[in-house]
Design a protein around this nucleic acid. Structure first.
Lengths: 142, 142
DNA sequence: TATTAATATGTGCATATACACATGTGCATA
DNA sequence: TATGCACATGTGTATATGCACATATTAATA
């Protein structure tokens, strides 16, 4: 099959999407030994930080849609990394890490740290500050 | 509901995801009048550039998984923006833009151009080169 | 007290993405 | 010819994401 000559992609949105996808895959591959994606690892860390909370609070904190959080949490619940403490009504339920969840974070942290270091070097220490600032400016678009 | 004090997010992967999500939403909102997402707009432009091709070629060109292309194409087929020309066997099918597809790209281009300009200003002309270079370095991780 | 506000949760639908697997076709070669 | 490799397609399943809609509970207020 003949390959088609690539053209210069000009859309910053698409360029960004591709880089984001590559970056996610990289973190995911590094976290493979603990069977976590970077999204899952990040959400676990959020829960660790806020200790116990309801799902709406967690969504606000993680800056994700509430229904996204519900679905992502279901994966973590099934893995036994998170538990839901039933209140009097659904409204009063709280979620928190299990022992396994805490242990998995600890194990994952070592792997994440290495990924983080490698990415920092890929971006370049000297450019890091400006780069992260730009990411924040873009995030503010929403 | 009391809000939880945000902590500094250190994971570059998550920071990047958030920015990417915001950027996608921004482009999507700008392309709303032509009822296209930026992913769809980009795929249409890829097809316009390569004129006619099979799905595997398109996937390579767009740097997406082949099965992702199949599913994204199905949306464009249903919208009548793309058509599939049946060959002797499935293997010989070709896809190409419809008239409506070409028209929609033209209409979308004006909107996209404006989004593109705004993002360029958000990043800052003076930082643009370095920023895009970094995106490419990250993309190469895969 | 009855109605309304605010708050919390969940499901259906849709897009975007990719891996694993199954299937089909055509050509080269043993 | 038969076998296998290269190429092309499609489905099942999964994660990640968010909007629209429905429902339930609590607090405030008319």
């Amino acid at each position: 099959m003949s390959n088609i000559e690539p053209r210069e992609i000009k859309c910053y949105g698409i360029k960004f999407k591709r880089a984001s996808s590559a970056l996610t895959k990289y973190y995911d591959s590094m976290l493979k030994p603990v069977n976590l994606t970077v999204s899952q690892f990040s959400l676990l860390n959020d829960i660790k930080y806020i200790k116990t909370c309801n799902k709406t609070q967690l969504a606000k904190y993680a800056k994700l849609d509430r229904t996204t959080i519900i679905r992502n949490l279901n994966v973590l619940l099934e893995k036994g990394l998170v538990e839901e403490i039933e209140g009097e009504t659904n409204r009063n339920n709280l979620i928190q890490l299990t022992k396994l969840g805490n242990l998995t974070i600890e194990q994952g942290y070592v792997l994440w740290k290495q990924a983080q270091k490698n990415i920092r070097e890929t971006i370049g220490e000297e450019n890091l500050g400006l780069f992260l600032k730009t990411l924040e400016d873009i995030e503010k678009l929403t």
